[in-house]
Design a protein around this nucleic acid. Structure first.
Length: 299
DNA sequence: CTACTAATAT
DNA sequence: TATATTAGTA
């Protein structure tokens, strides 16, 4: 089993450059390449085989399982930094107990806050890989106060998109903070963060449903629920076809213009959030428009 | 006890 | 306004 889709070029987004140089490649040092790994989301053996050997069927791995696996992997790495490189990489990933990095990519942005960044200044932290503007300083270097306040999370367009995708992927009824948070797989993102955002999002949707007039303004994207045609090279196949997904491509870069997404590296540390298709099992959420959700996103 | 949600606070 | 925090509850 060595034939796997190229796990190399799955980060294709409208953006031109992706700043692959500054990426933390150290993460991959010593790790098996994607080609050597069996996707966590995939059963190790076929159901038939399992049955033949009286092996209890695997509980069907879900993205959540994959996520958890990746979490434990990361945790393990944290505990046993086998090399200074790994340590450095880890340090990069989580310089402090507060959120400042993402497991996969998405630029997580925090508002400069705390000491004296009243209003206006936004210390953006692009986690993607190129440490463009890192947090002003370590929150821990101030005083040995254990109770460090997390910086305010800024829901960037990308974060929000991820959020939307996940919410769309889960049904309305499954879209609860914890699950959303887990599927988003954004390091440092808390359940509270998501809960708060979800609350707002729900209100937003409620407002909208009252006015079936559609957003109108705003450069919305997502034409209208791509029926069944996946623009992606790897279109998410229909149910019957298993498809060994390890790291599917992301979404269509329906981002024609307007914004130059900062850094968009799509790399799944150990797999977690796969590009989702708006498969709303519960006919709940649909492609969202940015209506009012403009997100500050610049460095 | 955990997590969801609405309400409220910053 | 956007996000965080709290309170009440399932």
């Amino acid at each position: 089993m060595g034939e796997e889709a190229d796990a190399k070029d799955y980060d294709m987004v409208a953006g031109d450059s992706e700043g692959d140089e500054g990426r933390v490649l150290e993460w991959e040092v010593g790790l098996p390449s994607a080609d050597d790994l069996i996707p966590l989301s995939q059963s190790l053996i076929s159901p038939d085989l399992a049955y033949a050997f009286s092996i209890a069927p695997e509980p069907a791995r879900t993205l959540l399982d994959v996520y958890r696996a990746s979490q434990s992997t990361v945790s393990t790495l944290r505990r046993h930094p086998t090399s200074s490189l790994a340590a450095a990489a880890l340090n990069f990933f989580s310089p402090f107990p507060s959120p400042s990095s993402v497991a996969t990519d998405d630029p997580v942005v925090f508002e400069g806050e705390g000491d004296d960044a009243e209003s206006g200044t936004i210390a953006t932290v692009a986690i993607a890989g190129v440490s463009s503007c890192l947090p002003t300083e370590d929150p821990g270097d101030e005083h040995s106060s254990r109770a460090l306040k997390r910086p305010r999370l800024v829901w960037t367009a990308q974060l929000h998109k991820r959020f939307i995708d996940v919410v769309a992927h889960l049904g309305i009824k499954n879209a609860v903070p914890k699950t959303i948070m887990q599927l988003m797989n954004v390091e440092g993102l808390t359940r509270e963060n998501v809960a708060s955002h979800l609350q707002k999002y729900r209100l937003y949707r409620k407002r909208k449903e009252g006015i079936p007039n559609e957003g109108s303004f705003s450069f919305d994207h997502l034409p209208h629920e791509p029926p069944a045609q996946m623009p992606m090279p790897y279109g998410m196949p229909s149910p019957p076809v298993p498809m060994p997904v390890f790291s599917i491509a992301f979404h269509p870069g329906h981002n024609g213009s307007m914004e130059m997404m900062p850094i968009v590296n799509h790399h799944q540390a150990a797999g977690a959030y796969h590009g989702f298709v708006s498969h709303h099992p519960n006919g709940g959420v649909i492609g969202d428009r940015q209506g009012d959700w403009s997100a500050a996103n610049k460095c």
